[in-house]
Amino acid sequence: MNPALSVIFFTTASGAGYGMLVTLGLYAAVGRLPNDLWFALTAMVVSLGLITAGLLSSTFHLGHPERAWRAFSQWRTSWLSREGIMAIATYVPALLFGLAWAFPTYVPLPQSLLGILSAVFALGTIYTTAMIYRSLKPIHQWHNKHVVPSYLMLGVMTGAMLVLALTTLFGERTAFLTPVCGILFAAGLTVKWLYWSFIDTSAGASTPTSAVGLSGPNVKVTSVEWPHTEANYVLKEMGFQVARKHAARLRHVAIWAGFLLPAVALEASILLPAMAPLLLMPATVLMAIGIIAERWLFFAQAKHTVTLYYGSSSA
């Protein structure tokens, strides 16, 4: 699948934003949110900013962004519709939560309840996003049980890490979040690892022969000529191919930058608390790079069944 930058940015940025909401919401639930106006404002702006920027970016790849509102109508069947609704709906508890947190005197609402609600809605939104991919049968690399956990884990992981970075910046670091982040990195890498080993060792049920309706134990179908000698929409959108070597290299980037190095930095920040800001800031940037690489691969390595018609041996 074509790794469109707008969609990569959307899923990673919004994912992190929702992950922050989850983290902050749970913090609130356990009553350990720092009561610092600037921290609260910054955290909420970053979180909702990432979410909003992601959502906006996702509309950039629409042919008719001005009609985007129509996308809320088909929640009965469409995960994209559901995602849209969830994304918008999440703003309600999230904004209230943010206001209640930043301006508790002016907005005397139950922070913990709103935190939980925000977390639930945020998780729900990530879930609907993941389900958009998870539900697409023509794409084996998406249509599997690893996709939803990956999205959820990585959203929460990146969000938690961002919150941790912010708390560090604002000097509000708690002993609690760092190990949690460590655990999240381990879990994130695990789900991602499971995902990767799944796609590396399995292929979709469809084959070049089933694509053309032939069957038989020895039947082989080879593409001789395409219907068009230049690329068309279908090929540009769904026929994207990434070289094996390139993919392997990027996966290393994703593993090291996205998980291992940030985790090492976390370790180090525990051992060297004074160095924490110096360690966690670059770690966050590294993580962002790693997760973007991961997300790029999520698209680039996804093979659509239509490629079977164009000579691909599996999809």
Binding site: G216, K220, Y310
Partner: peptide, 9 residues
């Protein structure tokens, strides 16, 4: 319209 070669059929 695509063109293929089929073997083993």
């Amino acid at each position: 319209v695509h063109t293929y070669e089929v073997t083993g059929h």
